[in-house]
Design a protein around this nucleic acid. Structure first.
Length: 276
DNA sequence: CGCGCTCCCTGGCCGC
DNA sequence: TGCGGCCAGGGAGCGC
């Protein structure tokens, strides 16, 4: 599920059910995720209270009462399923099970196993290898046209690739980069350095808008192959470019159609007429 | 250092 | 219905 709006939606759901709760039981069913889970993870989490649930970029942060933070990343296919009580049987690919004191059970389910967890002292998080080189939060007040310009200056790579680079701005993925560039009327093939300046000033508000719109819609649900107790996001119905290859451009007055190209190994969708 | 490609893993979908 | 090929929301690692 996971770009920034989906992770934020998950964070809010977890916060509502887990904040302030003690983890009565944690079960690691499969430790070989993208990276091996920390040693004795279940033991180190059991009995801990979750004081806060935060997000940085696409990472979930569970601040614990012992001064450590559980860092979680959903990868491509990771989900956090919430159950009112511990299910009698776990579903396929539920690799980690968190049971709170009131019985609320959260399962981390990830059939591709690109997701992962780590445990790290809360005060030292900025220095953690996952966070040390991350760019600004796109919804933060410090993410401005000037800041984006600074980070794009001199970059020859296409703007599409630059915006996917979490060191430039942290939290965008393939969908929302396509959507933001569409809204801003900027070609994904244009060099990053040519976007620095006036185009970056135009682009930043569109990045914030598309993320806020998607969060308001509960994120995007592309492949809900397993029904969960959680609600599905519905922002996928508002895509203007992503996944619309061959369809008419949705910009009013534009007669173009959406193209699909491959950039740095990922699909890019854009209108060749109105994105310049 | 910057950039682009390959790969990690599983499964859905499409065409034959 | 079965099978092969392609595709998927991320990003680390490697080679140039």
């Amino acid at each position: 599920m996971p770009e920034l709006p989906e992770v934020e939606t998950v964070r809010r759901g977890l916060e509502r059910r887990l904040k302030g709760q003690v983890l009565a039981q944690v079960e690691v069913r499969r430790p070989d995720l993208r990276f091996p889970l920390p040693e004795r993870l279940a033991e180190r989490l059991t009995g801990r209270r979750i004081d806060d649930l935060r997000r940085r970029a696409k990472y979930l942060l569970f601040d614990l009462d012992d001064g450590n933070t559980l860092i979680g990343h959903l990868g491509m296919s990771g989900r956090m399923n919430i159950h009112d009580a511990r299910p009698n049987a776990v579903a396929p690919h539920e690799h980690v099970v968190f049971v709170a004191a009131d019985g609320t059970t959260v399962t981390f389910q990830d059939h591709r196993r690109f997701g992962y967890f780590d445990l790290h002292p809360t005060v030292d998080l900025p220095a953690h290898k996952y966070f040390a080189s991350l760019g600004p939060e796109p919804l933060g007040s410090d993410f401005t046209g000037a800041e984006l310009t600074r980070r794009l200056t001199g970059k020859k790579t296409p703007i599409k690739a630059a915006l996917l680079d979490q060191r430039v701005v942290a939290g965008l993925g393939n969908i929302y980069v396509c959507e933001a560039l569409f809204r801003a009327g900027i070609s994904p093939r244009r060099s990053a350095l040519s976007v620095a300046g006036t185009r970056a000033e135009r682009l930043v508000p569109h990045i914030k808008d598309v993320l806020n719109d998607a969060i308001a819609a509960g994120g995007s649900t592309l492949r809900d192959y397993v029904q969960t107790s959680g609600e599905l996001g519905y922002f996928q119905h508002d895509f203007r470019a992503y996944g619309r290859e061959g369809e008419a451009c949705r910009k009013p007055g534009c007669a173009g159609s959406v193209k699909r190209i491959v950039q740095s190994g990922r699909s890019t969708f854009y209108c060749g007429s109105c994105q310049r």
